[in-house]
Design a protein around this nucleic acid. Structure first.
Lengths: 148, 148
DNA sequence: CTAAATGCAAATCATTTGCACAATA
DNA sequence: TATTGTGCAAATGATTTGCATTTAG
């Protein structure tokens, strides 16, 4: 399995685009990060290593990464679009704590299967889905209970 | 079961808010509409009956409706927030055609149950969820096939 | 009469775009 | 050298907010 750089380089070449230092830098930082980054967050981090970079370039590159299949856009409900690494990651959904915001990545094969079935039942060809579960994480449940 | 007006009136009174003609009018139009309205769309419709209304009032009222439990916010992925009637409606998720945009409301009790279970497995108390299924509706599948 | 609501316009916030200039293939 | 990319600033689009004025309770 090729490394992400090679994947992206291939993609860029195939689309007759160009590989630039800013794209390399953005990809670098993006891969080094764990969470689900906002374009703004990524921009801040990249700027420390590459001060001349502009926000627009980050926005544009994030879109490119998503197109290339390396990144995936997820919306958590705060105003901003977030991107997570898709490369080498298996599919997952999100379980989000409404109190503290922690995010757990979850999967349930049975749910996945049932989604396919629901779509089929309506004659749809399923191409993707978004599932966000909202609740209270163990810690926040404790806090809430004790404060009542 | 009380009618939506009474429900909203109660809510407004309970919160020590006031019932105004514009709120009545907005609720009227909102209830008369089927689909998943944008604040802008609702504003346009309301304006024909109540020309002096301002967009801000519609935004504010839509939030109120959501707080009261009469409306529910849903995000379809186009930039704008949409609201659907919650009153008297059973819970459902959305199956959206990526080609033509049609939206089918779907439910699958098994999926609902499994979501609860996934949350429990992680120690979360589930408070809600959002499930959007994306695909191609029967019509668009046909078109796509024939055009290839 | 007093707290809340309205309309308007200006302010935000995230994201996009136009453009002159710079850099890659 | 022909494109494509970049940075910047201005443009956008959805939503919010400040404020002076009206209005419901």
């Amino acid at each position: 399995m090729k490394d992400p750089y090679a994947l992206f380089a291939d993609f860029v070449a195939r689309q007759k685009l160009k590989m630039t230092p800013q794209r390399r830098q953005i990809l670098d930082v993006f891969l080094a990060e764990e969470g689900h980054l906002t374009s703004e967050e990524l921009y801040q981090k990249v700027k420390t290593e590459f001060p001349s970079i502009g926000q627009a370039t980050v926005y544009r590159t994030l879109k490119l990464l998503a197109d290339s299949g390396l990144a995936k856009a997820v919306e958590f409900g705060d105003g901003a679009m977030r991107y997570e690494i898709l490369y080498g990651q298996s599919h997952h959904d999100h379980l989000i704590c409404e109190a503290c915001g922690v995010n757990v990545e979850v999967v349930d094969p049975a749910i996945e299967r049932l989604q396919e079935e629901v779509a089929r039942r309506h004659g749809f060809a399923l191409t993707g889905h978004k599932l966000y579960l909202y609740g209270l994480c163990p810690e926040c449940r404790k806090k809430r209970t004790s404060s009542l």
